[in-house]
């Protein structure tokens, strides 16, 4: 891929090629026992990496670990756990 002068991106959807999981220091872990399937995590996720379900699915290739899902979850079913290194 050759860069264009001025960093103009001429094709749509190029962000899918840039996986942002490396930005994450905490990952959302879902407790399926507590999850009520209300869908608020899916609604609030700013990166649209959560798919609806009981429990919800998280696309860890793009999740940046912002923690909004855990903060919004009314059932306290999502906790942010340190990303394991190594």
């Amino acid at each position: 891929m050759k860069l264009t002068p001025g960093a103009v991106i001429t094709e749509p959807g190029s962000t899918t090629r840039y996986q942002t999981n490396g930005w994450r220091t905490f990952r959302p872990a879902v407790d399926s026992g507590k999850c009520t399937g209300c869908g608020l995590c899916w609604l609030y996720c700013p990166d649209a990496v959560i798919s609806r379900g009981k429990p919800p699915g998280v696309d860890y290739r793009y999740c940046k670990g912002c923690g909004i899902c855990a903060n919004e979850c009314p059932a306290k079913a999502i906790t942010m756990v340190p990303e394991e290194r190594g």
Binding site: L3, T4, P5, G6, A7, V8, I9, T10, S14, Y18
Partner: peptide, 28 residues
């Protein structure tokens, strides 16, 4: 202009230049 802003042919201008490519843009 090679890649102008044009509603009929959308482009992205001024995206993030991550460390993997910023230096290349400065070199260009």
């Amino acid at each position: 202009l090679p890649n102008p802003l044009d509603p009929c042919r959308p482009v992205t201008m001024g995206p993030v230049g991550v460390p993997e490519c910023y230096e290349e843009f400065r070199c260009m």
